[in-house]
Design a protein around this nucleic acid. Structure first.
Lengths: 144, 144
DNA sequence: CTTAATGCAAAATCTTTGCATGAAC
DNA sequence: GTTCATGCAAAGATTTTGCATTAAG
């Protein structure tokens, strides 16, 4: 495997992700770093995120508009999350059931290298309309 | 709700989707139709796909590169699929377990309007390397 | 010194939109 | 005849890439 160098940009980006408990996109991350006085180019942001993802150090989700969001993965295995559309608040959820289900599918089909994607999202307590009984927004149509 | 008109393009697009048992993107769909002699602009393809999706007539998945793929949804509810990265072959799978799990999460958190995304993909029998015991490609890292 | 990382600008890709024209109702 | 649908080209948005420069090992 090709060796990678320790650079200030990379450690700064990783550090930022480690201290964030929500998903963040490349551009918001760039802005956060800029505000903190770290001017790192978008190329470097993208390349570093891609590198970290390859190394299994990040979990990723996709926004409806296609934007990729990243979150530091504390453990050796991927996690599943419940995220708030509005503010990005992220809860780690136990998806053992889903893992087992995916494993079962894996074992009962002749597909190889099966990968699964599971994302849960909604509106958190703070962002949700306050009188849910009244005529609030309707739940979005599920798109899977 | 605004009324929608019956037009030849729209029925042609829907017809094409109904007779396909795999997911397809806007551009491949455009090409298929063109080959069949139907020259429908990309704008119309995109607008129609969006309309059908809004109406709950399509299921969607996203490719790693961000491309949206669509598939006709035969029933009133969304389905879950196992798709082949390589050829697009699609199997409908029973995801009752996951539905119940999502419902459980829904009931035990104070998030509102929870939506879930579940995608399974891999390589089908035909596309997978033929001697899996030998040094074939390694399973891709799961990215969820 | 040798090779990888960075920044900049340009390019690539998928998707959306403004506007004039044409078709549906 | 109104209003919606369509095509075309241009614009948007996110991400990638070529290339010269800088810095790590």
């Amino acid at each position: 495997m090709r060796s990678h160098r320790h650079t200030s940009r990379r450690s700064r980006i990783l550090h930022e992700l480690q201290h964030l408990d929500s998903f963040i996109g490349a551009q918001p991350l760039h802005i956060r770093l800029a505000v903190a006085g770290e001017h790192i180019s978008m190329s470097t942001i993208y390349r570093t995120l891609h590198l970290l993802e390859t190394q299994g150090r990040l979990d990723t989700i996709r926004e409806p508009n296609g934007e990729r969001l990243y979150r530091y993965r504390p453990g050796p295995h991927h996690q599943h999350y419940l995220t708030c559309h509005e503010c990005g608040l992220t809860l780690t959820i136990d998806a053992t059931v889903v893992e087992d289900w995916a494993e079962h599918i894996r074992a009962t089909t002749n597909f190889a290298y099966i990968t699964h994607t599971v994302e849960l999202s909604g509106l958190c307590n703070t962002c949700a309309p306050q009188q849910p009984a009244h005529s609030g927004p309707q739940p979005p149509t599920e798109t899977e």
